[in-house]
Amino acid sequence: MLGIVLDLVIIASLIALAIQVVSGASLFRGIIHFIVMGLTLALAWARLGAPDLAMAEAAIGAGVTGALMMVAYRRLVEITPDHNPSRTGSRSRLALPIAVGAGGLVGLLGLGATLSDPEPGLAGLAVLEALQDEALGNPITGVLLLYRGLDTLLEIAVLLTAFLAAVAVTRREDLDYSITTRDPHTPLVGALLAIIVPLTVLVSVHLLKAGSHDPGGAFQAGAVLAACGVLLVLTSRVSASSQSRPLIGLGIVAGLISFSLIGLAAMLRGEPPMALPGMWAVYFIETAMMLSIALTLVLLFAGTESLRRNQHG
């Protein structure tokens, strides 16, 4: 009973927040509502028995997307200080019927699938049976790396492509430093970083290691690590640089390269491609992916292709 009430509260908040996001008065408020919606969605994932998704949503869906939207908004404000766009554009009379129709279609599809006494998914059944003999206790990591490895590989490729495309359309001379804190030399900033940076690294490594048997994994860990990088950019410990660095380039492609090479090496042994040789490969690939994901997200946030370190006391 309490569970249903909780579900209803979560769902009501989600819908109210979504309406606020698309119809709110100011763009900035829209971003805030979007982030809160992401966090509420994380609660919904937890209620749906998906703790991995809850973590990913909180870290990536709400955190990273929110940070990216904030920095994009900041760049708009930079160009036009009183950036206050008109609320709505085309007042299409068809908008409401189309929206109701689309929502109704989704609801019909979903209710049809839910109420018709669904069979358990055969693929999921096979995964759960097969994974009982494996050292991987988290079936989601198992699916991502052992059974749908190609999907995960392409996902890393998509992230890399999006990054390259974003760098390509970003105008270099406009790399602004206005997103950083005004006075990076205050002792408080140093003390804050001295506490938060090691903690974040610890949490992300724990999430990575836990990912093989408990909720967690490379994506969640990478997003947490990216948050640490965003903090370093904001406090101007590292800042955008137009000079390309081999180490950063290597870090961006580390996940893709190591996953591809280990996956292709399976063919030399006469196994199907993407078959992983053992648990060491799972840890190796996850670590490389975590670093690549984190670095790519930080670079996307900074809107640059490379970073340099700044010396502060």
Binding site: A18, A99, V100, G103, G104, V106, G107, G110, L111
Partner: peptide, 9 residues
């Protein structure tokens, strides 16, 4: 149902 409403929004 929540997904349907959210999609519509």
């Amino acid at each position: 149902l929540a997904a349907a409403v959210l999609f519509g929004v």
